[in-house]
Nucleic acid binder design. Structure first.
Lengths: 218, 218, 218, 218
DNA sequence: GATGAATGAGTTTTCATTCAT
DNA sequence: AATGAATGAAAACTCATTCAT
């Protein structure tokens, strides 16, 4: 119910109807609506935490970048295994101060982890000079957005899918039109690139590692 | 009030108290709580839309990357000019379907815009081969996260700020300790890198353009 | 409603039905069921406080015993004027700690007042040696019980009145039977001696002053 | 639990926790919460009934006043023997009609008994002319109040006891100050006169018999 | 005889919205 | 145009009681 309607729009009535239990039974297991949400949240955070490893310099652990790729893939797979929980956690619905703090802590830890990976890169001389916090925050944001859309895409597969991108995709202008046939690749791309988790992980990692452009900003 | 407490925790009573008007007066100008929120949202989206330009190939418009940099900077400055509105829009509080659609449309447009920039890069041969949607979504996520934290930082400047990163920052191990003095740059970084908007824009752009590592994934 | 059903058996639903107002309207004027009860209580206590005077030795104030009689009469009349409130306060229904303390304070004040009257009697040499606290507590208890039954009697006048005394009034035995005519006074007494407030006050005062028996205990 | 928290604030959960039994077990022995309360009540009322004797004119039974004194003493001792039960019965918590009637009947019987004692006094010519019902009700009220406070005092011996009398005890004025030493008796009285049961019984009886003042009201 | 998970009617409280003044 | 008292639907939560094991 939380996944479908969000925290606020979901009433305890919705939950007990869906669970086919009596009102009192609900309060036998959870002291409040907040608590069940926090419990679900915490459960998911624990699972996700378990799917992430720090980047190690120990050669036995393999190449740092390979470790990072493994992390990305594991996280995405875990999220897919727990679609419902992942959805409510990623929605980041307004919770009370305690649950908020729990989630904030988690994200800080993720940022710390990514930052550490960047520092490892610095030490090895394979990462360019940069502010590791900004990089880590950006990477976290990118990951969250990608995962959110991946899950939304899955939810929409069976349900009605309003084609939101329609108006957004700019009408082809003479100046920068997608000349038909020039680079068939783009138009031949699958409707949603979020379908293949491993490809997703790799694209994300490549973006993280290499950026997009071959020519520098300055 | 929406900025301080979020959409749900803000009651019409909070609004009219803060506005020093009567209950009835509120409903003279807005038909519902949802409407005032949607109006604020829409206002901000309009302003932000105005601060973004499509990347043009016309040489008169300057280098594509310079245009991108200008876009990043304008967006950040606009967000800073409208901290309150930006905060409530970025919080992405669960609203009704209509407001949801409005916001989704906006983000699709942003994604379309970034995607177009990537396609321009492809056409000019200055962007590596990649899935432009994944890139665009990632960039959007990175931008949202950065802006959110930038605003949170500003809100927290006067207020108490619990140092969440404490547990996250791994205790230095022998293998990958931050040897003091080796690379003073990192440790000499300002406590929050979110203070200088232009530097933020540049770091973000560089991450977008170049990624982090000099060595490829594969 | 509180008078009829007591605090716990009265629901906010009962109150708003009786008051012919909407649920929300109730909470516009009272923050809780407890509060309206406390407000009613406090109102009554204030009125009663206003009807009691300390016994003064100033000759202008009249005889001490006359002052006491006036107090008794005023209290009884005030209770009759506020039958409903008096009933709920005397019922002493379980309230929260605050209301409880309020009521306890009130009764302590009454005890203090009666105790003071007794001390005045001691000073004037017109009161026998006794523990003033025990006397004061007893007098308070007597007054409460009398008032409670006076009010119950009034409530029962129109309503059905189960004759509770039936089994209690001992069946006339040869040893101590109420020989008809022997002491016509007792049997000629009105069915309820609680009907005439002033007589009630005087009987109570006489009991307080003179006790019942002409012969001493020891 | 009833003694500590009163009827309404005590839940079946409290009872079974304290009794270390399962929920179902409770309903094996009592059909409802009301019933267990009624059973406890009835038990106490039976014990108290057993501790009271009618005043007899048979010389073998001793002086009427001595019989009364014995009654008072027995009641007080019985109450002390059953502090818990006495407390819940005296609290007179709002129960259902049946339990209410049971208690009302009991009090009517007590009133009948006291009234009978007064009538005996009348017959013997040792009681002044008075309304026996008012006297009986007053005596009952006095007794209840005294017993209530005696029990409250015992409960508070170990617990913190807020000195409620503070505001009530009038500040000594020149007119009616308690000249130190004048009547040391009063001020030398023990902090609580409720500690000694027999003394309590005797004070109460003396109050009942002789009242307080040596000079008549009229 | 004991257990305790399940029940659901009933209660308090909130708050967006209306409308007569 | 402004007001604010009144509304009532909807929500969270409690707890005495039942009954299959």
């Amino acid at each position: 119910m939380f996944k479908e309607k969000g925290y606020h729009a979901t009433s305890v009535g919705d939950i007990i109807d869906a669970a086919r239990i009596a009102r009192g039974t609900f309060y036998l297991y959870f002291t409040s609506k907040r608590e069940i949400f926090a419990a679900l949240s915490a459960g998911f955070l624990a699972v996700i935490r378990g799917s992430v490893r720090k980047i190690s310099l120990d050669p036995a652990e393999g190449e740092p970048l390979a470790q990072m790729r493994a992390n990305f893939r594991r996280v995405i797979h875990t999220v897919l295994q727990h679609e419902d929980l992942a959805t409510i956690v990623l929605r980041d619905d307004a919770l009370d101060a305690e649950a908020r703090a729990q989630l904030d802590l988690f994200y800080e830890q993720v940022i710390g982890l990514i930052g550490q990976a960047v520092r490892v890169g610095h030490r090895l001389g394979i990462a360019r000079e940069c502010d590791e916090t900004i990089i880590a925050v950006s990477a976290l944001g990118a990951l969250k957005e990608i995962l959110t859309r991946m899950l939304a895409g899955r939810r929409a597969t069976s349900t009605a899918l309003p084609a939101l991108a329609s108006e957004a995709s700019e009408p082809p202008t003479s100046t920068e039109a997608s000349e038909p046939g020039e680079l068939g690749v783009a138009s031949a791309a699958p409707p949603t690139p979020f379908a293949d988790p491993d490809r997703l992980a790799d694209e994300l990692l490549r973006f993280f590692v290499r950026g997009v452009f071959t020519q520098d900003t300055r």
